[in-house]
Amino acid sequence: MFRLPRFLTIVNFARNLSKMSTPPKRSTPSRIGTHNGTFHCDEVVACFMLQQLPEYENAEIFRSRDDKVLRETCDIIVDVGGEYDHEKKWYDHHQKPFQETLHSLHPEVSKDFDIRLSSAGLVYSHYGERVIQRILEKEHQKQLSARNLQLAFVQIYRNFISELDAIDNGVPMFEGGEPRYKISTHISARIGRLNPSWQEKDVDIEQRFKQAIEVAGKELVQNVLEVCCSWLAARDYVREALENAKSVYPSGEILLLSTFCPWKAHLADLEKEYNIEGVPKLVIFNDGQSWRVAGVPVTPSSFLGRKFLPSAWRGLRDDELSEKAGIKELVFVHHSGFIGGAKTREAALAMAKKSIEWPEEAE
Protein backbone atom coordinates (compact mmCIF):
# COMPACT_ATOMS: atom_id res chain seq x y z
CA MET A 1 0.00 0.00 0.00
CA PHE A 2 1.36 3.42 -0.99
CA ARG A 3 1.84 5.89 1.90
CA LEU A 4 2.57 9.61 1.80
CA PRO A 5 5.86 10.64 3.38
CA ARG A 6 5.39 11.71 6.97
CA PHE A 7 6.35 15.38 6.35
CA LEU A 8 3.70 15.65 3.56
CA THR A 9 1.05 14.23 5.89
CA ILE A 10 1.91 16.92 8.44
CA VAL A 11 1.77 19.63 5.79
CA ASN A 12 -1.65 18.49 4.57
CA PHE A 13 -2.93 18.33 8.14
CA ALA A 14 -1.74 21.88 8.73
CA ARG A 15 -3.45 23.07 5.58
CA ASN A 16 -6.74 21.42 6.59
CA LEU A 17 -6.49 22.92 10.07
CA SER A 18 -5.93 26.36 8.53
CA LYS A 19 -9.02 25.93 6.37
CA MET A 20 -11.10 24.98 9.41
CA SER A 21 -9.99 27.97 11.52
CA THR A 22 -10.16 30.62 8.77
CA PRO A 23 -13.61 31.36 7.30
CA PRO A 24 -13.61 30.77 3.56
CA LYS A 25 -13.53 33.81 1.30
CA ARG A 26 -17.06 34.49 0.14
CA SER A 27 -18.14 35.33 -3.34
CA THR A 28 -21.00 37.74 -4.08
CA PRO A 29 -23.38 38.78 -2.73
CA SER A 30 -21.56 40.84 -0.13
CA ARG A 31 -22.73 41.07 3.47
CA ILE A 32 -23.64 44.08 5.63
CA GLY A 33 -23.42 43.40 9.35
CA THR A 34 -25.43 45.08 12.09
CA HIS A 35 -26.81 44.11 15.50
CA ASN A 36 -29.78 41.83 16.03
CA GLY A 37 -32.72 42.29 18.42
CA THR A 38 -34.52 45.64 18.66
CA PHE A 39 -33.65 47.81 15.68
CA HIS A 40 -33.33 51.59 15.57
CA CYS A 41 -33.67 54.16 12.86
CA ASP A 42 -29.96 54.92 12.57
CA GLU A 43 -28.77 51.45 11.52
CA VAL A 44 -31.88 50.95 9.40
CA VAL A 45 -31.07 54.09 7.39
CA ALA A 46 -27.36 53.19 7.33
CA CYS A 47 -28.14 49.79 5.80
CA PHE A 48 -30.47 51.33 3.22
CA MET A 49 -27.84 53.87 2.19
CA LEU A 50 -25.21 51.16 1.74
CA GLN A 51 -27.59 49.12 -0.41
CA GLN A 52 -27.80 52.04 -2.84
CA LEU A 53 -24.11 51.62 -3.69
CA PRO A 54 -23.03 49.21 -6.46
CA GLU A 55 -20.77 47.19 -4.16
CA TYR A 56 -23.61 46.51 -1.69
CA GLU A 57 -26.80 46.71 -3.76
CA ASN A 58 -27.28 42.92 -3.59
CA ALA A 59 -25.83 42.58 -0.11
CA GLU A 60 -27.34 40.33 2.53
CA ILE A 61 -27.94 42.06 5.87
CA PHE A 62 -26.62 39.86 8.65
CA ARG A 63 -27.82 40.76 12.16
CA SER A 64 -25.81 39.55 15.14
CA ARG A 65 -23.99 40.74 18.25
CA ASP A 66 -21.18 38.23 17.87
CA ASP A 67 -18.29 40.54 17.01
CA LYS A 68 -16.05 37.68 15.90
CA VAL A 69 -18.58 36.30 13.43
CA LEU A 70 -19.42 39.80 12.16
CA ARG A 71 -15.79 40.68 11.53
CA GLU A 72 -14.98 37.34 9.89
CA THR A 73 -18.01 37.14 7.60
CA CYS A 74 -19.13 40.71 6.82
CA ASP A 75 -17.74 43.17 4.29
CA ILE A 76 -18.94 46.19 6.28
CA ILE A 77 -20.33 46.57 9.81
CA VAL A 78 -22.59 49.32 11.18
CA ASP A 79 -23.83 50.19 14.69
CA VAL A 80 -22.15 47.25 16.39
CA GLY A 81 -18.65 45.98 17.08
CA GLY A 82 -17.39 48.73 19.37
CA GLU A 83 -15.05 50.30 16.85
CA TYR A 84 -14.92 52.96 14.17
CA ASP A 85 -12.34 52.30 11.47
CA HIS A 86 -13.06 53.54 7.97
CA GLU A 87 -10.22 51.50 6.45
CA LYS A 88 -11.70 48.29 7.86
CA LYS A 89 -15.25 49.46 7.11
CA TRP A 90 -16.34 49.25 10.74
CA TYR A 91 -18.81 51.98 11.71
CA ASP A 92 -19.87 51.82 15.34
CA HIS A 93 -20.45 54.94 17.43
CA HIS A 94 -21.28 53.54 20.87
CA GLN A 95 -17.74 53.41 22.28
CA LYS A 96 -16.88 56.17 24.76
CA PRO A 97 -13.92 57.68 22.83
CA PHE A 98 -16.08 58.24 19.74
CA GLN A 99 -16.92 61.95 19.43
CA GLU A 100 -17.04 62.46 15.67
CA THR A 101 -19.43 64.99 14.14
CA LEU A 102 -20.16 65.94 10.55
CA HIS A 103 -17.88 68.95 11.00
CA SER A 104 -15.01 66.92 12.42
CA LEU A 105 -15.09 64.53 9.45
CA HIS A 106 -15.86 67.32 6.96
CA PRO A 107 -14.13 70.48 8.25
CA GLU A 108 -15.36 72.37 5.19
CA VAL A 109 -18.95 72.33 6.49
CA SER A 110 -20.29 74.60 9.21
CA LYS A 111 -19.12 74.26 12.80
CA ASP A 112 -22.82 74.32 13.67
CA PHE A 113 -22.98 70.63 12.71
CA ASP A 114 -21.60 69.58 16.07
CA ILE A 115 -23.98 66.72 16.98
CA ARG A 116 -22.27 63.40 17.71
CA LEU A 117 -22.86 61.04 14.80
CA SER A 118 -24.97 57.90 14.94
CA SER A 119 -24.32 55.00 12.56
CA ALA A 120 -26.56 56.79 10.03
CA GLY A 121 -24.49 59.97 10.24
CA LEU A 122 -21.25 58.01 10.16
CA VAL A 123 -22.18 56.11 7.00
CA TYR A 124 -23.58 59.31 5.49
CA SER A 125 -20.34 61.19 6.23
CA HIS A 126 -18.31 58.67 4.25
CA TYR A 127 -20.75 57.62 1.53
CA GLY A 128 -23.48 60.28 1.46
CA GLU A 129 -22.42 62.03 -1.76
CA ARG A 130 -22.27 58.71 -3.61
CA VAL A 131 -25.65 57.69 -2.19
CA ILE A 132 -27.22 60.95 -3.38
CA GLN A 133 -25.83 60.53 -6.89
CA ARG A 134 -26.99 56.89 -7.09
CA ILE A 135 -30.53 57.75 -5.98
CA LEU A 136 -30.69 60.50 -8.60
CA GLU A 137 -29.37 58.15 -11.28
CA LYS A 138 -32.02 55.55 -10.42
CA GLU A 139 -34.92 57.97 -10.15
CA HIS A 140 -34.12 60.63 -12.76
CA GLN A 141 -30.96 59.59 -14.65
CA LYS A 142 -29.51 62.84 -13.32
CA GLN A 143 -26.09 63.93 -12.07
CA LEU A 144 -25.27 66.96 -9.94
CA SER A 145 -22.35 69.32 -10.39
CA ALA A 146 -19.66 69.19 -7.71
CA ARG A 147 -20.94 72.44 -6.14
CA ASN A 148 -24.58 71.35 -6.09
CA LEU A 149 -23.66 67.90 -4.80
CA GLN A 150 -21.90 69.47 -1.82
CA LEU A 151 -24.89 71.77 -1.21
CA ALA A 152 -27.27 68.81 -1.37
CA PHE A 153 -25.02 66.77 0.95
CA VAL A 154 -25.17 69.48 3.62
CA GLN A 155 -28.88 70.21 3.20
CA ILE A 156 -29.91 66.52 3.41
CA TYR A 157 -27.83 66.19 6.55
CA ARG A 158 -29.59 69.27 7.97
CA ASN A 159 -33.08 68.10 6.93
CA PHE A 160 -32.88 64.40 7.63
CA ILE A 161 -29.73 62.79 9.00
CA SER A 162 -29.03 65.23 11.85
CA GLU A 163 -32.41 64.38 13.39
CA LEU A 164 -31.45 60.68 13.46
CA ASP A 165 -28.04 61.44 14.98
CA ALA A 166 -29.50 63.66 17.66
CA ILE A 167 -32.33 61.33 18.69
CA ASP A 168 -30.13 58.23 18.74
CA ASN A 169 -27.56 60.00 20.92
CA GLY A 170 -30.15 61.62 23.22
CA VAL A 171 -29.19 65.18 22.29
CA PRO A 172 -31.56 67.85 23.72
CA MET A 173 -33.17 69.89 20.99
CA PHE A 174 -32.74 73.17 22.87
CA GLU A 175 -29.65 74.51 24.60
CA GLY A 176 -30.41 78.20 24.76
CA GLY A 177 -32.71 80.07 22.40
CA GLU A 178 -32.16 78.31 19.06
CA PRO A 179 -32.85 74.60 18.40
CA ARG A 180 -29.73 72.50 17.70
CA TYR A 181 -31.65 70.44 15.15
CA LYS A 182 -35.13 70.16 13.65
CA ILE A 183 -37.53 67.23 13.75
CA SER A 184 -38.93 67.22 10.24
CA THR A 185 -39.82 63.55 9.69
CA HIS A 186 -40.50 61.79 13.04
CA ILE A 187 -39.04 58.79 11.22
CA SER A 188 -37.24 57.52 14.35
CA ALA A 189 -40.55 57.10 16.16
CA ARG A 190 -42.18 55.42 13.17
CA ILE A 191 -39.32 52.97 12.79
CA GLY A 192 -39.40 52.29 16.52
CA ARG A 193 -43.06 51.29 16.32
CA LEU A 194 -42.23 48.56 13.81
CA ASN A 195 -40.43 46.61 16.54
CA PRO A 196 -42.68 43.96 18.12
CA SER A 197 -44.54 45.23 21.16
CA TRP A 198 -44.30 43.42 24.48
CA GLN A 199 -47.68 41.80 23.75
CA GLU A 200 -46.78 40.43 20.33
CA LYS A 201 -45.69 36.81 20.20
CA ASP A 202 -44.06 34.78 17.43
CA VAL A 203 -43.24 37.85 15.35
CA ASP A 204 -40.67 37.55 12.58
CA ILE A 205 -38.44 40.44 13.62
CA GLU A 206 -36.24 40.04 10.55
CA GLN A 207 -39.27 40.67 8.36
CA ARG A 208 -40.07 43.74 10.46
CA PHE A 209 -36.49 44.92 9.94
CA LYS A 210 -36.94 44.62 6.16
CA GLN A 211 -40.17 46.59 6.45
CA ALA A 212 -38.32 49.27 8.43
CA ILE A 213 -35.70 49.57 5.68
CA GLU A 214 -38.47 50.09 3.10
CA VAL A 215 -40.16 52.79 5.20
CA ALA A 216 -36.93 54.65 6.03
CA GLY A 217 -35.60 54.24 2.50
CA LYS A 218 -38.69 55.80 0.98
CA GLU A 219 -38.31 58.76 3.34
CA LEU A 220 -34.66 59.26 2.43
CA VAL A 221 -35.33 59.00 -1.31
CA GLN A 222 -38.11 61.59 -1.07
CA ASN A 223 -35.78 63.91 0.83
CA VAL A 224 -33.00 63.49 -1.73
CA LEU A 225 -35.38 64.19 -4.62
CA GLU A 226 -36.91 67.24 -2.92
CA VAL A 227 -33.49 68.74 -2.20
CA CYS A 228 -31.88 67.89 -5.53
CA CYS A 229 -34.82 68.62 -7.83
CA SER A 230 -36.58 71.48 -6.03
CA TRP A 231 -34.43 73.00 -3.30
CA LEU A 232 -31.35 73.36 -5.51
CA ALA A 233 -33.37 74.87 -8.35
CA ALA A 234 -34.80 77.47 -5.96
CA ARG A 235 -31.31 78.31 -4.75
CA ASP A 236 -30.19 78.89 -8.34
CA TYR A 237 -33.09 81.32 -8.92
CA VAL A 238 -32.28 83.26 -5.74
CA ARG A 239 -28.56 83.29 -6.60
CA GLU A 240 -29.41 84.72 -10.03
CA ALA A 241 -31.60 87.42 -8.45
CA LEU A 242 -28.88 88.34 -5.98
CA GLU A 243 -26.20 88.57 -8.66
CA ASN A 244 -28.46 90.79 -10.80
CA ALA A 245 -29.75 92.95 -7.93
CA LYS A 246 -27.78 96.07 -8.83
CA SER A 247 -29.23 96.05 -12.34
CA VAL A 248 -32.68 96.28 -10.73
CA TYR A 249 -31.75 99.00 -8.24
CA PRO A 250 -28.25 100.50 -7.80
CA SER A 251 -27.97 99.78 -4.08
CA GLY A 252 -28.79 96.08 -4.54
CA GLU A 253 -31.63 96.37 -2.03
CA ILE A 254 -34.31 95.04 -4.42
CA LEU A 255 -34.28 91.48 -5.78
CA LEU A 256 -36.39 90.43 -8.77
CA LEU A 257 -37.06 86.70 -8.97
CA SER A 258 -37.45 85.41 -12.51
CA THR A 259 -39.63 82.56 -11.16
CA PHE A 260 -41.36 82.34 -7.81
CA CYS A 261 -39.79 79.87 -5.40
CA PRO A 262 -39.23 79.51 -1.65
CA TRP A 263 -36.53 82.15 -1.20
CA LYS A 264 -36.12 83.23 2.42
CA ALA A 265 -33.73 80.56 3.71
CA HIS A 266 -31.73 80.58 0.47
CA LEU A 267 -31.32 84.35 0.62
CA ALA A 268 -30.09 84.19 4.22
CA ASP A 269 -27.42 81.63 3.23
CA LEU A 270 -26.38 83.38 0.04
CA GLU A 271 -26.00 86.75 1.76
CA LYS A 272 -23.32 85.15 3.94
CA GLU A 273 -21.67 83.56 0.92
CA TYR A 274 -21.53 86.90 -0.91
CA ASN A 275 -20.72 88.85 2.28
CA ILE A 276 -23.70 91.22 1.88
CA GLU A 277 -25.71 90.32 4.97
CA GLY A 278 -28.57 92.76 5.55
CA VAL A 279 -28.35 94.51 2.17
CA PRO A 280 -31.43 93.08 0.35
CA LYS A 281 -34.61 94.70 1.67
CA LEU A 282 -37.42 93.81 -0.76
CA VAL A 283 -38.10 90.88 -3.10
CA ILE A 284 -40.36 91.07 -6.16
CA PHE A 285 -41.96 87.92 -7.57
CA ASN A 286 -44.99 86.69 -9.51
CA ASP A 287 -47.26 84.37 -7.55
CA GLY A 288 -49.02 83.10 -10.66
CA GLN A 289 -51.86 85.62 -10.56
CA SER A 290 -50.23 88.95 -9.80
CA TRP A 291 -46.93 90.49 -8.74
CA ARG A 292 -45.83 90.79 -5.13
CA VAL A 293 -43.39 93.00 -3.24
CA ALA A 294 -42.32 91.33 0.01
CA GLY A 295 -40.07 92.56 2.79
CA VAL A 296 -37.01 90.45 3.54
CA PRO A 297 -37.46 89.08 7.07
CA VAL A 298 -34.81 89.65 9.73
CA THR A 299 -34.40 85.85 9.88
CA PRO A 300 -36.06 83.31 7.55
CA SER A 301 -38.71 82.44 10.17
CA SER A 302 -39.24 85.98 11.50
CA PHE A 303 -42.36 88.10 11.02
CA LEU A 304 -40.23 91.23 11.31
CA GLY A 305 -38.95 92.69 8.06
CA ARG A 306 -35.85 94.74 7.28
CA LYS A 307 -38.04 97.11 5.32
CA PHE A 308 -41.81 97.64 5.49
CA LEU A 309 -43.95 99.20 2.81
CA PRO A 310 -44.90 102.80 3.75
CA SER A 311 -47.45 103.16 6.56
CA ALA A 312 -49.50 105.58 4.41
CA TRP A 313 -50.26 102.69 1.99
CA ARG A 314 -51.09 99.99 4.51
CA GLY A 315 -54.56 98.50 4.43
CA LEU A 316 -55.43 100.26 1.15
CA ARG A 317 -56.52 98.54 -2.06
CA ASP A 318 -56.92 99.07 -5.81
CA ASP A 319 -57.73 102.63 -6.96
CA GLU A 320 -57.44 104.15 -3.50
CA LEU A 321 -53.98 102.66 -3.07
CA SER A 322 -52.85 103.59 -6.58
CA GLU A 323 -53.96 107.19 -6.06
CA LYS A 324 -52.29 107.43 -2.64
CA ALA A 325 -49.00 105.93 -3.90
CA GLY A 326 -49.04 107.68 -7.26
CA ILE A 327 -48.52 104.33 -9.03
CA LYS A 328 -51.07 102.80 -11.39
CA GLU A 329 -52.27 99.17 -11.23
CA LEU A 330 -51.57 98.50 -7.58
CA VAL A 331 -53.75 95.88 -5.84
CA PHE A 332 -53.14 95.99 -2.08
CA VAL A 333 -50.74 96.57 0.78
CA HIS A 334 -51.11 94.37 3.85
CA HIS A 335 -52.11 96.24 7.00
CA SER A 336 -48.75 95.37 8.60
CA GLY A 337 -46.79 96.51 5.53
CA PHE A 338 -44.77 93.32 5.06
CA ILE A 339 -46.15 92.64 1.57
CA GLY A 340 -48.00 94.37 -1.26
CA GLY A 341 -49.43 93.41 -4.64
CA ALA A 342 -49.60 94.86 -8.15
CA LYS A 343 -51.10 93.85 -11.49
CA THR A 344 -47.88 94.22 -13.49
CA ARG A 345 -44.14 93.77 -13.07
CA GLU A 346 -43.62 97.49 -13.79
CA ALA A 347 -46.08 98.54 -11.07
CA ALA A 348 -44.46 96.17 -8.55
CA LEU A 349 -41.02 97.52 -9.40
CA ALA A 350 -42.23 101.10 -8.97
CA MET A 351 -43.78 100.14 -5.60
CA ALA A 352 -40.50 98.60 -4.44
CA LYS A 353 -38.34 101.54 -5.55
CA LYS A 354 -40.63 104.08 -3.96
CA SER A 355 -40.66 102.06 -0.71
CA ILE A 356 -36.86 101.91 -0.58
CA GLU A 357 -36.67 105.68 -1.09
CA TRP A 358 -39.43 106.40 1.47
CA PRO A 359 -38.15 108.23 4.57
CA GLU A 360 -37.44 105.98 7.53
CA GLU A 361 -40.48 105.40 9.74
CA ALA A 362 -40.72 104.35 13.36
CA GLU A 363 -42.39 100.91 13.39
Rank of each mutant, 00 (worst) to 15 (best):
G121Q: 04
F332R: 01
I339W: 05
C229V: 14
C41F: 07
V215P: 02
A234G: 15
W291T: 03
K218Q: 13
R63I: 06
D236Q: 15
V11C: 05
T259P: 07
I327W: 00
V224G: 01
E273M: 06
S302I: 04
D79H: 03
G176W: 08
K19V: 08
K272P: 07
K324P: 00
H126L: 01
P5N: 03
N36C: 11
H140N: 13
G37A: 15
R306K: 10
T73R: 06
L70T: 09
S301A: 07
R26L: 13
S30D: 12
N16H: 07
V224S: 01
Q150I: 10
G177C: 08
F113P: 02
V333Y: 00
W231T: 14
D85S: 13
H103M: 07
Q199G: 12
E240F: 10
W198H: 12
Y127G: 02
Y249V: 08
H86F: 02
E253G: 02
M173F: 04
L349V: 05
Q199W: 15
H106P: 06
I213H: 00
L256I: 01
P280Y: 01
Y56A: 05
G305Q: 13
G217M: 11
D79R: 04
K264L: 04
Y237R: 14
G82W: 10
R3I: 04
Y249R: 11
T101W: 04
K182T: 13
E219I: 09
F285C: 10
S336R: 05
C261H: 06
K264V: 05
C261T: 15
Y249F: 14
V331C: 02
E72H: 06
F285Q: 09
V80Y: 04
S188E: 09
E200W: 08
E175N: 14
M351C: 01
F39W: 09
A294N: 04
V154F: 03
Y181I: 14
L330M: 09
D75V: 13
L242I: 12
A294D: 06
E271N: 00
K272E: 14
D319N: 11
L4F: 11
K182C: 09
E240Q: 15
A294H: 05
E360A: 12
C47L: 05
F98Y: 10
E360P: 02
I254Q: 03
R180W: 06
I77C: 01
L144R: 05
I61L: 05
I276M: 13
V109I: 15
